[in-house]
């Protein structure tokens, strides 16, 4: 054979050390990059926790957690978080009452009923709504929706504040519709077709199949979608900063003005900050509460969704 010994076989023992060193360095860089996300979380926890501890050295923890008056600039100042939690809760409830049915029903319609043409129009519309910055929605809430609700309410003989919780909650609800809708749409589509077939073969109508088979099967996923939506509503800032106002009222009247945790954080930290005063530090304590609550909600929701997906894979 004339071809033999044209190529000398490389020795398996002789490693290309340069390449191995370079690749090891590349891997180290890549691993470090994935650590940045972890560092971010640690940074958030440490910075928020540190300033919060400074705050709690001045204001007792129990006063903060169970106080019913929020007046950081009062004399003497008072840092009771309950009115803020109440306001956040009120607006979140309004938002979910608006977004829940709208988001879920539009997801059901898109997943089960819509023709491809309707989907091709409706999906981009929802994505468009999802892409609108919240500062824009806040402007709309404050300058268009709030006056509208006020004049409607006044003509119905109601006493409506110019910065009513209802206006902020309504617009926040519309902001959340795409979130609930797209998450639920995915979840509903993940329900195996065989379950639907089983139901249709029994002579069930489409809505019976959706209500009695598809939705119960998708329930864990849909609940998680709602939890994520709640977490999003609690953490939303601009809509409430612009439309909900600063009055720390502990009320469940949707026509009254309330304030939220995020509004107070933003207000306390815009302008002059004094890191030695309880007023500025209280924003970090509020941030700690916000971070813990949303993290807990997100964690539960994401874990449930993950389990749900594994079930049908």
């Amino acid at each position: 054979m004339a071809m033999t010994a044209q190529i000398t076989a490389p020795s398996f023992a002789a490693k290309n050390m340069t390449r191995i060193h370079i690749e090891r360095a590349v891997l180290t860089v890549l691993a470090a990059a994935s650590g940045v996300a972890v560092l971010t979380t640690i940074g958030i926890v440490l910075s928020v926790l540190y300033e919060s501890l400074l705050f709690f050295s001045e204001v007792p923890f129990w006063h903060f957690l169970f106080g019913t008056t929020w007046a950081p600039t009062g004399n003497p100042p008072s840092f009771g978080i309950l009115p803020l939690l109440g306001g956040t809760l009120l607006i979140t409830v309004i938002a979910i009452v608006v977004a829940g049915p709208l988001g879920l029903f539009s997801a059901i319609y898109l997943a089960e009923y819509a023709t491809p043409k309707v989907r091709a129009v409706a999906k981009p519309l929802l994505e468009m709504l999802a892409g609108i910055p919240t500062v824009v929605l806040g402007f709309f809430a404050a300058l268009t929706v709030a006056p509208l609700i006020r004049s409607l309410g006044t003509s119905a003989g109601l006493d409506v504040a110019s910065e009513s919780a209802l206006a902020a909650g309504l617009v926040m609800g519309m902001m959340i519709v795409p979130l609930i809708s797209s998450l639920s749409d995915d979840i509903i589509n993940a329900v195996p077709q065989s379950l639907r077939d089983g139901s249709y073969a029994m002579g069930a109508t489409k809505s019976e199949t959706v209500k009695k088979v598809v939705l119960p099967a998708a329930l864990p996923g849909i609940v998680s979608a709602f939890i994520l939506a709640i977490s999003r509503a609690i953490g939303e800032t601009m809509i409430v900063v612009m439309a909900a106002g600063l009055a720390a009222n502990l009320t469940f009247n949707p026509f009254a003005a309330v304030t939220t945790v995020t509004v107070q954080i933003a207000t306390l930290l815009v302008g002059d900050q004094e890191f030695d005063s309880a007023k500025t530090l209280s924003a970090f304590a509020l941030g700690l509460v916000l971070f813990c609550v949303t993290l807990a909600l997100n964690y539960v929701a994401l874990r449930t969704v993950r389990k749900y997906r594994e079930q049908y894979e």
Partner: peptide, 18 residues
């Protein structure tokens, strides 16, 4: 809907509802 009530079906893969 009534046709399917009279004509039952069993599928390839068992598909009990959850």
């Amino acid at each position: 809907v009534q046709l399917r009530a009279r004509v039952g079906m069993v599928f390839q893969k068992p598909n009990p509802f959850p």
